[in-house]
Write a protein that binds this DNA or RNA. Structure first.
Lengths: 233, 233
DNA sequence: GCAAAAGTGTTCTCAGTACACCCATGT
DNA sequence: ACATGGGTGTACTGAGAACACTTTTGC
C-alpha cells in the first residue's frame, strides 16, 4: 500500500459570548489541548477520526459532542487541508467543518485544563496549521454573514432586533445603523414578530422576534442537506 | 487499523466550446470511462489517488494531466464528498476540485472511446455520485461568475468584449445587455484595451482586450495560493 | 421631566437596467 | 446604400447609507 495517508475531521466552532472587558458581545471559539505528540500541550481544533459507517458531517458532529459536548445548530463543511508537511512525521488530510452554536448551548462546554474558550481574533499559536484554518473560518463566517441569514444560529429562540444587530456587529466588527438594520431584516422576512416584549431595560421595551422557519438560513445550494442543521433534537 | 477508508482526488473541468447546433458557445466538461468495477464502462470524473509527497491541488493537477492532458488556468477546491455508501463495496472519500480551461487548451484533449466531451447540462448518468458533483460544480461556477472575474479563465490571451460577454451568457444562461456589460467590465478594471482590433466580421471591428494582472480573478481569501493558477508555465 | 433606546420618515447616492441612438466596417 | 454588430448617452428603478425625528418605557 505504500505510504499511509490518514484522514481526520476537525471543526471550528463559533459562539457569541460576553466580552471580558465589559464591552459588547464577541466571537469565541473553543479549543482543546493536545495530549500527545506532535504538538503535545498546544491548543488545537477539536477533531478526530472518520468512522467506517458515518458521513463526514456525522463525524464532525460526533467528534464535537465527545470533545466539547456541543451540538451545534449550524454545521457546514469549510475546506480540506492536505499539504504534505502540515503534520510532522505523518501524512494527514483534514476535512474541516465550521459550526455555530447559540449562547445557551455554549455554556454547556465543561471548561478545564484541556478545553477552553478563546476570543476568535486572539487565538494563540495553534498546533499544525490550525491557526491558518481558524483565520480562514473567520473569513468565511464574515463573508457569509454579509449575504445570508446565518446570524440567527448564534442566538436563542427569541431575541430583540438589537440583539440580532449585535451579532452582526460582533462578527463583522462594524457598527450598523439600527434604523436601516431593522428595515433590512424586516424586508428579508427571516424573522417574525412575537406578541411579547422584553421589559427590564430603562427604556422603551423592545419587541421579541422569532425565526421564520419558512426562510432558509442560507442561499440554498444543491447540497442543502449537507449545509443544514445536523441535529435539531 | 479497522476498516480501510481510502482517499481520492477528482476534478470537474469546464471549457467553452461551440454548440453542435450552431448556436452560441456552450459549457462542456470532459469525462473518462471507467475501465474497472464498480461502474465498469460508465462515464466518470477524471481523478486518481493522492500521492505521499504532493498537495491536494497538486494531485488534482497531476491527475488531470495524465487522464486528459489538460493544464487548467484556474483550479479550486470544490467540496469533499464522503457519504458511506457512495462507492459500492468500499469506503472512498473524494476531495473534488473544479477547473477552467480556455478554448485553445480544451482542444488538446485526445478524445476517444475512453475520453469524451459532454455538454455540462446534459451529462449522462455518471458513476458513483458524480452526477451530483457535476450539478454542484455547475452551481458553484454560476454563483461565482456573478460576483467574480473568473470568466477570463475560459478565454485566450486577447478577446473582444463580445466574446467575454458570450462567456457570461453561456455560463449564466441569460442574455446580457452589451452596453451595460461593457460599462461594468470597464468599471471593474479587470481588462485593459490593446491597440488592436479584430477585423473580418461584416461590421465595425471590435477592440481586443487583455487581462489586467493587477486585479485578482477572485475575491481574495486567506487561502489565495490554493485558489490561484497552479501552473502558468 | 429626562435619559435612553425603540421605532418611523425622508433624502441622497450609487449600481443595475432598459433602451434610444450614433459609428465603422464588409458586402 | 444598408445590414450588422461595436460603442455611447441617458433616464428610470431599487437597495442601501445617513440622519432627523417621534414614541415609550424606567427612574
Amino acid at each position: 500500500m505504500g505510504d499511509e495517508i490518514s484522514l481526520a475531521i476537525s471543526t471550528v466552532i463559533f459562539a457569541l459570548r460576553p466580552d471580558p472587558d465589559g464591552g459588547s458581545p464577541t466571537l469565541w471559539i473553543p479549543l482543546v489541548r493536545r495530549i500527545r505528540e506532535p504538538f503535545l500541550g498546544r491548543w488545537a481544533l477539536p477533531g478526530g477520526p472518520l468512522l467506517a459507517d458515518e458521513s463526514l458531517s456525522g463525524a464532525a458532529a460526533r467528534n464535537l459532542k465527545t470533545t466539547t459536548g456541543l451540538e451545534p445548530r449550524y454545521l457546514e463543511q469549510l475546506y480540506a487541508f492536505g499539504e504534505p508537511d502540515r503534520s510532522p512525521g505523518a501524512r494527514v488530510v483534514s476535512i474541516v467543518y465550521w459550526a455555530l452554536v447559540h449562547a445557551g448551548e455554549a455554556d454547556r462546554v465543561a471548561e478545564g485544563d484541556n478545553v477552553r474558550w478563546f476570543i476568535a481574533d486572539e487565538v494563540p499559536d495553534l498546533a499544525f496549521d490550525h491557526s491558518t484554518i481558524v483565520e480562514y473560518a473567520l473569513w468565511r463566517l464574515r463573508t457569509k454573514m454579509e449575504h445570508s441569514r446565518i446570524a440567527h444560529a448564534l442566538l436563542g429562540d427569541t431575541f430583540t432586533l438589537a440583539q440580532l444587530r449585535e451579532v452582526h456587529e460582533a462578527v463583522l466588527r462594524t457598527k450598523l445603523d439600527p434604523a436601516n438594520f431593522r428595515r433590512q431584516i424586516e424586508a428579508s422576512g427571516s424573522v417574525v414578530a412575537t406578541d411579547q416584549v422584553l421589559t427590564g431595560g430603562r427604556h422603551r421595551p423592545p419587541r421579541l422576534y422569532r425565526y421564520n422557519d419558512a426562510v432558509s438560513l442560507v442561499d440554498s445550494s444543491p447540497l442543502d442537506d449537507a449545509a443544514s442543521s445536523p441535529s435539531l433534537s
